[in-house]
């Protein structure tokens, strides 16, 4: 429950809090609902992917309403932080990779928060040039990958079957570019 409120921001960074403002509302709603779980309100949104259909709160087991979209943002942010920490030093891959910079981490957080939780959660990794990668994977020949560095550019590439390929670069400011949204949706259908 504490994790839903913990943004993990130890330093102020304007990009860290940017993105989809609804996320903060979701977290807050979850928190407030949890506070009243012992009372009448036992239906609320769950902000973690790891959950169960019952919860033991102050000694009582209550049923939770699991309908609707599960917000995976907190889980993804935790994974992002882990990847960042693992790739802080140069040569993290054993082949001379560049370290992930604080700025790249910050942009990746911003970008992650722009991805609607109605879309599947990406796998998070890193590339040798120090960019952070989000991957949506269905099968060997159905995969979509985006990466972000210290600027506001997304580099993307994807395969939707052996013969359907797409790649390019998109600028992002305050919302996820439509082409990226479209490709993620295309993969999940």
């Amino acid at each position: 429950m504490e994790q839903a409120l913990n943004t993990g921001n130890s330093l102020y960074d304007p990009d860290m809090g940017a993105g989809n403002g609804n996320r903060n509302m979701t977290d807050l709603a979850g928190f407030l609902s949890l506070q009243t779980i012992d009372g009448k309100n036992n239906t609320f949104s769950i902000s973690k992917e790891a959950y169960s259909d019952t919860s033991n709160v102050v000694g009582k087991t209550v049923s939770l309403d699991l309908k609707g979209i599960i917000d995976w943002t907190d889980l993804a942010l935790e994974k992002l932080e882990k990847v960042y920490e693992e790739c802080l030093d140069a040569n993290w891959d054993g082949y001379g990779a560049m370290p992930i910079s604080r700025e790249t981490y910050s942009k990746a957080r911003k970008l992650l928060r722009m991805i609607p939780s109605s879309l599947p959660r990406p796998d998070i990794s890193a590339e040798p040039d120090g960019e952070i990668t989000f991957e949506w994977y269905k099968e060997k020949y159905s995969v979509f990958v985006i990466s972000v560095g210290g600027n506001n550019l997304i580099t993307y590439a994807g395969m939707f079957g052996k013969s359907n390929k797409i790649h390019g670069t998109e600028y992002f400011a305050n919302e996820l570019p439509e082409i990226i949204r479209h490709c993620i949706r295309r993969l999940s259908h």
């Binding site: 990794s125 890193a126 995969v143």
Partner: peptide
């Protein structure tokens, strides 16, 4: 040398084949 290069289903991620700075 690192798990980031493959997935749980034993397929390989693209970053295993991304070229280095050279």
């Amino acid at each position: 040398l690192q798990k980031k290069w493959y997935r749980a289903d034993k397929t390989i991620r693209h970053n295993a084949f991304m070229p280095n700075q050279n």
